[in-house]
Amino acid sequence: MSVLAVAEHRNGELRDVSFELLTAGRELADAAGADLHVAVISGDAEAFAEELNREGVDAIHAVTYGDEFNHDVYVQAIEALAADLDPTFLLAPNSVNGLDYAPAIAESLDLPLVTDVIDLAYDDGLVATREMYGSKVETTIEVDGDRAAVTVRPTEWPPAEGLGDAEIGVVDVAIDESAIGSTITGFEEAAEGDVNLEDAEFIVSIGRGIEEEENLELIEELCEVTGATMGSSRPIVDNDWLPDNRQVGQSGAVVTPDVYIAIGISGAVQHVAGMKGSDTIIAINTDPNAPIFDIADYGIVGDLFEVVPALIEEFE
């Protein structure tokens, strides 16, 4: 029996989630009585393999083809490795690139797929825990059959540490280039804007609870009287109510202020990814069950249209 975990890298560096995958993979391998194999595909795969040699890893397979991620290369490489290793469980990160190849390889290897998993157990079969309805409920999903593919939510497992004694092998996979149907032509970084949220010490962020663009004035006023920098969740930027550089989260800015006030923001995992490193988090939300309260230090369960005007009054 084996677990095959697929590492992720970008721009010459392994991403943190790769080391978290090793921990999740080791736990699952222990529970199922399996070996932990790791695949690292493209880029400086051999150097990455050395870095991935952490405690608990049994074998690492470096596929040295291509530079950056390409889903066709990943699918072909994993197919080739799977033909050899016959993995019981395939583990990939629930990242943007994970979403781009994991469903395809699962389908191609005929593996049931469970995504965005936050806990894994093995009891004669795989039991995965995942969230639903914007993190308001948790569910367990039992997988029928022996095998499965799983994508693992970033930052749920601690990174694997310590030096391992894995067997490292370089695998020469014959990639069929005629089957590569998408070509990466470059990368673009979001343009720098009027503010740099990353440097701000005090951020007031606004979410969909604001309802209308006109209502943003209220938050602008709060920022003015308090000297806070305004950030937002994604829907505000999607609506073009604020420019791109105001978005906090997985696909926006990762901020670490002294104080972060989240107003009318539910606390979706992709938002939290960008602000959980704040020193103090304060949430204002009408819904006492909103997931934002799970990571908040202080909270007000209340209507922003009442609380914010009262707050402005405090400072006027």
């Binding site: 569910t139 799970d294 007000i300 609380v307």
Partner: peptide
């Protein structure tokens, strides 16, 4: 092959201090 076997409200990991009262008090 997938069966949803349990659904529950996650145990809150929150150790947030919730300020109680009306808007004026909590804003205070």
């Amino acid at each position: 092959p997938l069966t949803l076997t349990e659904m529950y409200e996650p145990e809150t990991e929150s150790d947030a201090t919730i300020w109680e009262g009306d808007a004026g008090e909590t804003a205070g």
